[in-house]
């Protein structure tokens, strides 16, 4: 991927002396030098592992432990009440969990698919020679650097039932006012719009970077053969971009499965964790948070978090296998 243009590391290694010369007395500095040389790579990478261990691995394992207990705030002494896999068994029959899973997948599809298609088209346009190109390219990233909260609060105003801009606009064409939060589909569309707004530009820039790596000669040759712009896009750009597209599919899938902030703030009610009056847009992350911090069922909330983790692993694995098969087909 990104190979630096400087001297390759191997070359610099050959320039430095490799320990003491034969016959020379071993000096203290030299031994220190050797130890440093051996240990410095670990020092380089240690910050990541320390931070990951404290904020990633430990919570993950601790959550796994908590998920095996019946710990809940309203029961004294339940913290160390070990119940094995009981919480997971309950989860299998929990209608609210399955509802949350369905919502997550639905909103995920509704936000990821149009988002990536739009990003692809946008990248294609940005790849042309445009006036003020850098400005426009940076501009598409702006929605992404704005905070989820700020964006969602604005969209909630736009999607307002009585005085929202979108209902006003639709009203001009005689469409009656929609209570966007009330329905399943309308709320999914509302949330997906927010996600799409925030992430399309980001993915477009990734695609753009990949497009710029496509050799210009390919297009030139295709043009000489009489291929139209659309044909060039379909037969050259898309195949070359395939690994990049897979990367964005996997990252947006993970992002969609963990969706939390958008539905939380979109609900615009006193009980945002409920995800709507009938939980029509309560995602898995919202349900986990609701059980953990809303109802203070720590053990059960932790079990939902782990179930969510497993769902993500399974879906990403399926993604990955499909990707490998597609590559195999291509090679054959």
């Amino acid at each position: 991927m990104a190979v630096s243009t400087g001297t390759p590391p191997a070359a610099s290694r050959s320039n430095v002396p490799r320990g003491p010369e034969p016959g020379a007395a071993p000096v203290r500095g030299n031994r220190w030098h050797r130890a440093e040389r051996r240990l410095s790579p670990y020092a380089y990478i240690s910050p990541f592992f320390i931070v990951f261990g404290v904020f990633g691995l430990f919570p993950l394992l601790y959550t796994a432990y908590v998920s095996l207990t019946a710990w809940r705030a309203d029961t004294d002494g339940s913290q160390h009440d070990f119940v094995g896999l009981d919480n997971y068994r309950t989860l299998l029959h929990d209608q609210f969990f399955w509802n949350a899973l369905r919502n997550t997948l639905g909103i995920g599809l509704l936000s990821t698919v149009p988002q990536l298609l739009l990003a692809l088209g946008l990248a294609h346009l940005l790849n042309y020679r445009l006036r003020g190109r850098t400005f426009i390219r940076m501009g598409v990233l702006l929605p992404n650097v704005t905070s989820v909260a700020a964006v969602t609060i604005i969209f909630v105003q736009l999607f307002g039932r009585d005085f929202g801009l979108i209902n006003w606009f639709l009203g001009l064409f005689g469409v009656p006012h929609t209570d966007w939060q009330a329905g399943t589909w309308s709320s999914w569309i509302g949330i997906s719009t927010i996600v799409t707004w925030r992430w399309t530009g980001y993915n477009a820039l990734i695609y753009l970077a990949a497009m710029q790596a496509v050799p210009f000669e390919l297009y030139e040759a295709a043009a000489i053969d009489g291929a139209s712009r659309w044909r060039q896009f379909r037969s050259i750009t898309i195949p070359v971009l395939r690994p990049t597209i897979l990367f964005t599919v996997i990252t947006s899938t993970i992002g969609a499965l963990q969706m939390f902030g958008e539905p939380l703030l979109f609900s615009a009610s006193q009980t945002p964790m409920a995800g709507g009056s009938q939980h029509q847009f309560q995602t898995m992350a919202l349900y986990s948070y609701d059980q953990f911090w809303g109802k203070f069922k720590y053990g059960y909330g932790a079990a939902i978090s782990w179930a969510m983790f497993l769902v993500i692993v399974v879906i990403v694995a399926v993604n990955f296998l499909l990707a490998r098969r597609m590559k195999g087909v291509e090679a054959a």
């Binding site: 705030a73 309203d74 209570d179 009330a182 329905g183 009610s269 006193q270 009980t271 409920a274 009056s277 009938q278 029509q280 809303g294 109802k295 203070f296």
Partner: peptide, 23 residues
Amino acid sequence: GPHGADIGNIYGNALVSVEQGKA
């Protein structure tokens, strides 16, 4: 009780679903 506020909110939400014509 410990979940009094939660229970009130759950009924409140149920009444919202009636207001929305969803139930």
